[in-house]
Design a binder for these strands. Sequence first.
DNA 1: TGAAATTACTTTCCAAGTCAACTAAATTCG
DNA 2: CGAATTTAGTTGACTTGGAAAGTAATTTCA
Lengths: 140, 140
Amino acid sequence: MTDPNTFDSHLSYALAAAHRSVSQALNARLKKHGIQIEAWRVMECLDIGQKQTMGTLAKRALINPPALSKLVDRMVSDGLVHRQISARDQRQINLLLTNLGRARMLQIREEVEDQDKVLTDLFDNQSGPLLIQLLTKLAQ
Amino acid sequence: MTDPNTFDSHLSYALAAAHRSVSQALNARLKKHGIQIEAWRVMECLDIGQKQTMGTLAKRALINPPALSKLVDRMVSDGLVHRQISARDQRQINLLLTNLGRARMLQIREEVEDQDKVLTDLFDNQSGPLLIQLLTKLAQ
DNA sequence: TGAAATTACTTTCCAAGTCAACTAAATTCG
DNA sequence: CGAATTTAGTTGACTTGGAAAGTAATTTCA
C-alpha cells in the first residue's frame, strides 16, 4: 500500500483532479466562443453522423437525457441545431446542425485540437495514446 | 492523425467519459450512505489533517470556494463537521470532523476502497499505478 | 500610524443539472 | 385486434453550482 494517509493515490481522486483541471482549461478557451463543452460535444457528434436521435446523442455526448433536452432547447434558440421528428418513429427526434452550427463547430474544433495538443505534449509518444487507451477501458 | 472522423480519441473526451463512468458508479454506492462524492472528499481531507481552512480544503477536495461553503453548510446541519474560527486569523475557518462525521467517513472509506479495487482490477499490475501517474501529471 | 490593498470566506442571483412524473408513440402478445 | 407494456423524449419541482459582489480581518507601506 502506498502512503496510507493520503487518498490522492486513489484512481477516483486522480481521475477527478485530472478531469477538473482539463475541463477548466478547455472551458476557458470555449468561453471565447460563447459555448459550453457539452454543446461542443453535441455538435461534434452531429458532424460525425447527422440525424442522430436524442438517445444516441445522450450516450455519445455523455449527457443525461433531461440535461440534453434542455441543452438542445438552448442550442435551437441560438440557431446552432434544429429538431426534426423522425419519419419512421414519431417519438424520435433527429437533430441536425444548421449552417451556422457547422461553421461554429469548425472554429471551435480548432480550439479544442489546439488544447488537446497542449495536453498530449505533456507526455512522450507512447504515454499519450496509452493514457487514452486506459481511460477508454475505464469508461465501459 | 488517427481516425479523423471521430473525436473519441481526444484526451479530453476519453477523460470525460472515464470520469463520468467512474463517478456514476461511485455515486451509486455512496447513495446508500446518503452522501455526495464531494462531501466524502472533504471528510477524507479532514481526516488527513484536522483544522484545515476552507481555502486549503477547496483545493484538496477539488471544489470551488462558493460551492464548498454551501456544501459545508449542509454538512454542518447533518452533524458531520463543525466550523471553528481560527485563533490566529479571524477570517479563517478551521473545519473539524465531528465524532459522527468520523464514524461515517470510516464506513464510507470501505465502500470507496472497494470501488477502487474493482477499478484497478481492470488493469494489470503496471497499468493501474501508471494510469494514476499519468492522470496526476495531467492535473497540474 | 492609518489609508489602501489584499486575503478569506460567504452571499446573492441566476444558470444548469437531477429525479421522478408525464405524454405520446410503438411494440407485445393473449 | 386491442389492452398492457415498453420506449423516446420532455417537463416540473427541487437542488446544486458558478460568477461576481459583499463583508470583514489582515497586511502593506507612505
